[in-house]
Design a protein around this nucleic acid. Structure first.
Lengths: 143, 143
DNA sequence: CAGATATACTTGTTTTAACAAACATTGAAG
DNA sequence: CTTCAATGTTTGTTAAAACAAGTATATCTG
């Protein structure tokens, strides 16, 4: 890394590059199961929601992805038979998304490989350092 | 953050989420100058290259972006008049990209705002912590 | 309860990314 | 010198992101 650059820029680039590496490897894993990273995240969010389902906006808030794109993302997951969408009776503007049995089955297959992947990615970093890393990054987000 | 998740997954998500936040803000800045983040990076790489120009592949290697996409990325920069491309006489497979005067001018306008942006992004993190963060992330990359 | 405003989602359009395959040129082997 | 593999770039195709605008329902105000 260029030593003449201001430390803030080095930090910036380092965070982005690291994230990209982590993501790339993770996506290679997910690809074997026919999912992209955003799709996987949404599917996990939907699984974690209660039985009535979860509004699209709540999904969007927990995601990096923007709301207008959540619609089509869910559309694709629905086409794959991993989720179902129904319009809420209480508030007809809201669309509630639920995970299907097939969706659950797929996720349960992926859960372990995903954990393995992350363990491997952080294998040469102690738990203490991991906590420190998380602390630093969270502090950054609040600025 | 869900406390039941393994720490590796929390760390993973935190890195990705932070990177996304940093990138989003950065891209908003670049947008005022009509550039995307990858375009800006390529332009800086090209500026840093020697006068003969730099092969597309070398650019691809320094980027996150894959090589097949570098072609079209350079195409767009060329259309904007920020770079020129010529096929090398020494090895006619190679295309050498050079920055134009206009490209230099644009970059010189952006340099300061970019530094300001990064300084602001890391304003509430001490230099020590920034170094610590970089250290941790670099250690991670080597695993 | 009529009209304005806000909310939740959808649609349309334009870029850009991802992946596979093709093309052209070079260098090496026989 | 001819064939073959390797290298560097391009092209084609499909999927996904970005942004703006639109539709439907709810809520609030007078």
């Amino acid at each position: 890394m260029d030593p003449k650059q201001p430390i803030e820029r080095v930090a910036f680039i380092t965070v982005l590059r690291t994230a990209e590496e982590l993501r790339a490897r993770f996506e290679r894993l997910l690809k074997d199961y026919g999912l992209t990273e955003p799709q996987f995240n949404v599917l996990r969010i939907v699984r974690g929601a209660d039985k009535d389902g979860i509004p699209s906006q709540d999904i969007g808030r927990r995601m990096i992805t923007r709301v207008p794109d959540v619609t089509r993302l869910l559309e694709r997951l629905e086409q794959k038979g991993l989720v179902t969408r129904v319009r809420s009776d209480i508030d007809r503007r809201v669309v509630l998304t639920r995970i299907t049995t097939e969706g659950r089955k797929l996720l349960s297959q992926i859960d372990d490989p995903v954990d393995d992947c992350h363990r491997q990615q952080f294998a040469n970093m102690s738990k203490t350092d991991q906590k420190e890393l998380i602390r630093l990054l969270n502090a950054l987000a609040e600025g």
